[in-house]
Amino acid sequence: MKVAIEIFGLSGALLLIASGCAGATVPVARMSSAQAAVRAAVEVGADRNARASLHLRLAREQLGLARSLARDGEEERATSMLRRAQMDAELALAITRQAEADERAANAASRARTVRAGAI
């Protein structure tokens, strides 16, 4: 069965190469998903975090590039660019949340030190 899947995957790839991806289009769902990921990152405040804002900017640039590639008929490259945009947007969001959690933990630790000092 595993061998059959490998053969199928290989055959599919060969077929795709042979056809030169003619007629393929950028999946609307993938484009929507990447855009939604960017919006989610903005909503959590990724713009205000240095590291996160870098990835947010990359995501936006890659989204623009994907649109441009799609217009030029480079659907496969456009899809790859959307994957990159999606990942950068998700990473921007994760970094923002991590930074918030770090800040909350630092505040709690500081308060614990204060309370401990007061208890002595």
């Binding site: 990473l91 994760a94 970094i95 949340r97 991590q98 959690a101 770090d102 909350r104 933990a105």
Partner: peptide
């Protein structure tokens, strides 16, 4: 990032 988030939590 998620590992660090969980550690911070």
């Amino acid at each position: 990032a998620r590992g660090r988030l969980l550690a911070a939590q």
